[in-house]
Structures are given as C-alpha cells and as structure tokens.
Design a binder for these strands. Structure first.
Lengths: 350, 350
DNA sequence: CTGTTAGCGCATTCAA
DNA sequence: TTGAATGCGCTAACAG
C-alpha cells in the first residue's frame, strides 16, 4: 500500500491505533509486536523496549475482537445466575468476578429469573459473544442448553450443589445433607411438627434438595412431613410473612419451621412478632444462607452458613485452570455449618 | 479454495459451522446469509427461508468476534460498580442487564471497591474487550479513565448523581437536595443536634453530596454541624453499630442521626436496642435507599427512597438510544421520596 | 435483490 | 530470534 505516506512517526490519526502502527514506530514487523504482547521472552531485549515505548507513546490498546478471531480465545467468561439483585448470589458473583479479573478475564453476567428458557437465551447470547467458559447455577435446565454448550466445546461449571450422578462438573455443597442436619437438630430439641417454608421448587434443584433433606430427617424419626406443613412461594420477605400466617392457621400448626432461604425467615419472624407469637418460645425458625443480617436481627437467626463467596471463587479457579490447560481435579464438596443462634429452642410445653 | 471437496451437504465437521457453510447449504452467497442475519427484509422470501432452514439444520451460531471486527460493533456494554454484592447496586445492575438483554446487548460487569485505580483497570480491560458503551457510578474518578474512554470514542453514562457543572451525561438523582430535605424534616421535628453517620467520603461523591445536603439544612437553621457529630466508616452493619457507640458517647450526643446508607442505620438501630436507647424515643434514625428491609424491621425505618432500579434501566435506555444513532436528550433527574416511618420522631423532652 | 471483492486487526504458520 | 505471508469469520461497499 501507500509506502509510508506518513513518515513512521505518527499514525494517520484517523481510526484507531493498530498493532501495525506500533510496528512502524518501533521499526519492527507486526509479528514482533504481537510476540511482545503474547510471549515477551521470545523477543530481543532492545526490540522489546522499542515496542513498549511505541505502545506507550501511541496509547495502543489491542483490539479484543481481532485478537479473539485470530487466536480463538476471547478472555471472556459468562455467568448466569437465577437472580443478581440480592446478597446471596451477589456475593458469589462478586467473588467470581474478582477471581476472573485477577486472571485477566472479563465476565459477562445475566440473570435468568429461575426460568430455563431465559437461561437458554442468555447462554446462547453469551456463546455468540465468544465466551471461553461458562458458569451456571444448579444442574436442572433445558437440555438444549447443555447441547449448545457442548456444540461450542467450551468448559463450564455448575454451582451451588453437588454433581450427584451427573457428569457435569459442580462446585457447591450438599443441600440435602445440610437440610437434614438442620432438621435433625430441630427434632433433637423435641419438636415433632416441623414445617417447611420453601421457595418455588420447580426448576430449582437446590430447593428440591433441601426439601428432600427435611424429608430424610423426618424418615429417620419414622415420621412424614404433613402436606399442609409444606408451603411454597417465591423468595421474599412478604412471602415469608404470608406463609407464616398460612401455616400457623392450620388446625395443628408446627412448632418449628425450616425456611428455604433467609428472606423467608425474616418474613416469618416479623410476622410472628406482629401476631405475638414468640420466637423461639412458641415457634422456632431456622433457615439457610447466613447473610449479613442473620446474626444481627433479634432474635438472632439459627441458620446454615452456605459458602457463597467460596463458590464463586472456586468456580472461577476451576475454569481458569481448565482454560490454562491443566485438567483440575473435580471440585470437592464445600462445607456448610449449622450456626445455632437464638431463633430456635425447645417446643412450647403444651 | 478447494472447490467443494465436500459436496455442499454438510460442513467439514472439523471446526465450527461458519456463515459460509450456511451459504453453501442454502445455495446462496455468504453476503446473502449475512443480510438475512442483519437486515432480513432486504432478502427475497424463499431465499430467506432456505437460509433459515440451513441455519437451523447446521446449528449455526454467528461468531461475535468476527462480527465485531467487521462491523466495529460488539453488542457488548460494560458496567463498573463500586460493589455488586449488595441489594443497592444489585438492583441497578439487574435492571441494567435486563434492559440491555432486551435490546440484544450483553453486559460485562466488574466492581471497583470504591477504588479509582481498580476502576481504571476494569475500564481498560473492558475497552480492550471491545465494549460499545459504558456505565460508571458517580463523576469523581481518575482523570485518565475519562481519557481512555474518550480515546475510544464510545458513549458512556454516569449514574447515581446529577451531572452538576460537568459535561458527562448522568442518570441519577440529587443526593444533596434529598439529604437536605431529610435533614429539614428532622429539624422540623424539633431536633437541634443531628449527627451524621457517613460512608467513606473519599472518592464517593454521592456520600459527599449527602453530607453537603445535611450542611445546607444546618445552614438554613443558622447552625453548623459539630465536628464530633460526623463520623465516617465503610458501609456495613458492624460499622453502623460502632459509629452509634462513638457518637452517643460524646458529651452532648445528637438526638437524631442521618445515615449515609441503610446498613449503617440498621447497625445503629441494633446497637441502640442493645444499649436501651429507644428509637425514636431517645434517638431518631434516618437513612437513604429504602431497600427491602427498611419497611420490615422494627422500628420501621424512615428513609429516602432512591430510584435504584430506575437508574439501571434509564442508564441502559440512554445508552441503547445513543448506540442506535438517535441522540437522546440528556436524562432528566430522577425522583426521590422521603418515606416517613417509625424510626424518627420528636426529640426527647429533656 | 443478489453476488463479488476487500478488508477489519491480529496471531500464526513458515522461511530465513 | 525475526519478517513475510496467510487467514480467522464476517460485513460492507460495489457492481450487476
């Protein structure tokens, strides 16, 4: 082309600064500049210096898309959560993003609203954007979503539960065991009727697992969970209040409730207070998550601490390792802790 | 090259399915396939049908990077928040992401931890990833960050406050006026000593504005905020508790406190309860945000509702409009509402 | 309305 | 170690 119409001192100033501009200024070939960017050690020291100098003065910024096209790597990863406007997934997203940023990955995020179809849409869009890897919550989803991911051949992790029989790599904890443990504790306190205030179970395998755990515990006692002691509503304080009203108006109300998530428990506690139901005097309340509020409200909430941040971080680490070629061992189950505080106690004497 | 070594029925199956594969199968030119994707109306109906059919059977997914390289548009936008693990910014991020997804944009997110340097890093990385537009919180930042954005010539919005004298487009509300209004209300109740429990002010112009608003209100009364009635700590319940202890141990403690954010107020309320300080009997507590908890705890919190979701949504709309060529009018200030509940009242008689 | 021709900016062969 | 050539997959003129 135009053999340096502009004398190699400055770029045409129309359009962005390209690698080629840098090459001109540094008086090396484009290939060398590329090497400086990707494998600096493979370049002569003073050339490298000249290139870096040129990059500096030109304010050169590599063009991600061009890079991705040529190298087949975008250094972008995706993450789809059921929701991102709450502390629970927020903590995970935050940790995920941090860990990825430290490894020089950029993260694309979206929320599915617990809807498999929306999730699929987001996955499709992300795949199209060229993500190198993907994080999803739970195992249950539209089968086509897995197919899409498979067709692109990118690594992925599922989080927030264990892999079970499945073949999908999973970073998470045993919701079922945790729920059983919590319920066992309630039985050990002397409760006989333990209700469940659950989130919507459909498409939410974590919630399903937790319910199963409660049932396991019931089974150990040779009992079964009464149908009218299980209520299901979307996560939210208001719903927690509503569910408490419903469950306490049964002919034989429970003396304890296990809540599928903390907002539900707060709702239950607030509503109980409004009805002069003493917690834990008349009713024990327990939940999952241990978010910032659990240890602050009164009564302080007995809850299962779930490793929210760890999940985000470990999931990111797993993907980073996979992307860098080392096949990491399958992630090991994360720990949960039953944190006993003030909202649970012995059942009322009657 | 190789003139259909494979008879146009199936792609080589090595490597991904490309637009060209689709073109072969549909017996049209690549350009036509491209048109089907981008401006379907400009293509003959039955050709379009053939192409869509081919896309379907081949499972073709466009290659974002290639597309971005050729069209100079990535359909990705960036958003950097000070934090993403809380309800406040989570709600904004959620709305932003939703609105963007509806317009077929993908969003890259990162959190800066209220650190301008981290923010700059994230912006740099995002720019490199090829974002078409960018959302940032507040106006105060490393000058170089603005330069970077300027050099790339992409549109951006700042959120969570007004533009002020600045030239940067802003979607937000008037923190200062809102804080003044809130403080005015407290004065109108008869308070004379109103303390401030603020977040860290450095690099946080929203917090600075709120403090300025409180000072404005003081000025209207011909008074000034006492130095020992202003405390500054990171956002958090624990910090709220600590600040309450500090401020109430002054020789002349305030009879009301304005908290820069809700977690601080919760901390203050919890700690007050622990010290048998009645709210609002002995001390009025007010704050900003009106998150889900404000109307639920007891006493219910008097707070300024801030338009968190609206901000995310409006910011997204503004960027979408700009990207689609129409120069939208500068966003108008969003409304805040003072929501008077139970945590504020007349000062104690003494 | 459709096909042909050129790149977009970079990484990566391959020779040297 | 370095440079020259080639193509990643797609869109955007340009002709027809």
């Amino acid at each position: 082309m135009g053999i340096d119409l502009e004398s190699a001192s400055k770029s045409p100033s129309l359009g962005r600064v390209t690698l080629e501009d840098v090459a001109h200024l540094a008086k090396v070939s484009p290939a060398t500049v590329s090497r400086c960017l990707n494998r600096p050690d493979s370049v002569n020291l003073d050339k490298r210096a000249r290139v870096n100098q040129a990059i500096q003065t030109l304010g050169y910024v590599p063009h991600g898309a061009a890079r991705a096209l040529a190298s087949k790597q975008s250094r972008m990863v995706g993450a789809v959560f059921p929701a991102i406007d709450n502390t629970l997934f927020g903590a995970s997203l935050d940790a995920f993003q941090r860990t990825m940023a430290d490894a020089d990955y950029t993260v694309i995020v979206a929320s599915s609203d617990y809807d498999p179809l929306r999730e699929k849409q987001h996955v499709r869009r992300m795949l199209q954007s060229g993500i190198d890897a993907l994080m999803l919550v739970g195992l249950v989803r539209d089968e086509e979503t897995y197919e899409l991911i498979g067709a692109h051949g990118i690594p992925y992790v599922t989080v927030w539960r264990l892999a079970g029989q499945q073949v999908h790599p999973a970073v998470g904890f045993d919701n079922r065991a945790a729920a059983q443990h919590l319920t066992d504790y309630l039985f050990s306190l002397g409760h006989e009727r333990i209700g469940v205030l659950s989130g919507i179970l459909e498409y939410n395998d974590r919630a399903q697992d937790r319910l199963a755990g409660v049932r396991d515990s019931y089974a150990k006692q040779g009992r079964t969970l009464a149908d009218n002691h299980l209520i299901e509503r979307p996560f939210g304080v208001e719903q927690g209040r509503e569910m408490l009203r419903l469950i306490m108006s049964q002919e034989t109300p429970p003396t304890a409730v296990v809540c599928g998530a903390e907002p539900l428990a707060y709702g239950a506690i607030f509503e109980a207070a409004a009805h002069n139901i003493s917690v834990p005097g008349d009713l024990s309340v327990a939940a999952f998550d241990d978010t910032w509020l659990a240890g602050q409200i009164s009564p302080k909430l007995t809850t299962v601490r779930t490793p929210n941040m760890e999940i985000g971080e470990e999931a990111a680490k797993y993907l980073i390792a996979t992307l860098s070629g080392v096949q990491p061992p399958l992630p090991r189950p994360l720990e949960t802790d039953l944190i006993i505080r003030e909202s649970t106690g012995r059942p009322p004497a009657g």
